[in-house]
């Protein structure tokens, strides 16, 4: 393995200072399931690794009916996947968590790490954006809160400034009249990166869709919102014809590329198919 220096941060302030002082090529280390692979395959130049696992307070999971679900930067994908609350109230998150890597990877990988890696195909991002999640960011001068939908600036890039650290994520409470789904499309079920991922979170009031968010993964430089498709669906009963037109609109809104996993045309087609399917699945909550 390429050599790097290992540092164990005791506090957020300590970790932030190390990030600033050790210069570029310094990376936070939580689960390490991406970082160690990138070091070993020489995909990322890493001189310093700052382990944040000894920092207290980053492993908490809380839920309340007003604030919602909040989890810290050290909470693993596996822990959230197994949480009964996630199974019951956030089937979209549960689907994304259970499809990431393998059980072994999920026992190490953190959701915050998956987000900070900012891959357009990251499984956890579309359902969290569709749910309106926001991220808590620490810096030595203040704390700020950023909607996840505004967190990404490009593939592998985020709004984080040097020395800033994401400490956790809050997902708004799951209302009783909400329906949620995440559909991942790949060539196999396990150990697979998404070819396309579509998340839908919606609210129904007396048979009418009062709000809906559609997030599309792996079909753009960042995870995208299909906002024109959403606008076509709000205020409707989500009948088949409207859903079909909105799915066609989502195909127009995405900006896929061709790569080893699929062609741009195929990805665009799948956005249409999966958007329709995800809306249908989200509605099954009310059936």
């Amino acid at each position: 393995m390429r050599r790097f220096d290992y540092h164990r941060a005791e506090t957020l302030e300590h970790a932030s200072r190390l990030l600033t002082e050790l210069g570029d090529d310094t990376f936070l280390f939580a689960g390490g399931t991406d970082l160690l692979v990138e070091i070993r395959e020489r995909l990322r130049r890493v001189r310093n690794v700052v382990d944040i696992k000894a920092i207290p307070g980053l492993s908490d999971i809380t839920y309340d009916e007003t604030r919602g679900l909040t989890f810290g930067a050290l909470v693993t994908v596996g822990r959230l996947e197994r949480l009964p609350l996630v199974r019951q109230r956030y089937p979209n998150l549960r689907a994304a968590f259970a499809s990431l890597g393998s059980i072994q990877v999920r026992n190490r990988a953190t959701v915050v790490g998956n987000i900070c890696r900012a891959s357009p195909s990251a499984d956890t991002i579309p359902p969290l954006i569709a749910d309106g999640a926001f991220v808590h960011i620490y810096s030595r001068t203040d704390m700020r809160v950023v909607p996840l939908s505004e967190f990404f600036t490009g593939p592998g890039r985020t709004v984080l400034a040097k020395g800033e650290i994401v400490t956790g994520i809050t997902v708004p409470p799951a209302a009783d009249n909400s329906g949620k789904a995440y559909l991942k499309h790949g060539r196999r079920k396990a150990m697979e990166l998404s070819t396309v991922g579509v998340a839908v979170s919606l609210l129904m009031e007396e048979g009418v869709c009062s709000d809906i968010r559609i997030a599309l993964g792996a079909v753009g430089a960042t995870v995208l919102r299909a906002s024109q498709a959403e606008a076509m669906l709000r205020g409707t009963a989500l009948d088949a014809a409207t859903v079909k037109s909105a799915a066609d609109k989502a195909m127009e809104e995405c900006t896929p590329i061709s790569n080893v996993r699929a062609s741009a045309d195929y990805r665009r087609d799948m956005v249409g198919v999966l958007t329709g399917r995800a809306i249908k699945q989200a509605l099954e909550t009310f059936a």
Binding site: Y6, G32, T33, L36, V37, R40, E41, D51, G78, G101, S102, I103, Q104, V105, N107, R108, M191
Partner: peptide
């Protein structure tokens, strides 16, 4: 690189890839 599972060990009760842990 965490793909094959041949290095699976159990750490504090949870299976992990030993190659992806320092």
């Amino acid at each position: 690189v965490g793909d094959c599972g041949a290095c699976t060990v159990i750490v504090d009760g949870e299976p992990v890839n030993a190659c992806l842990m320092l």
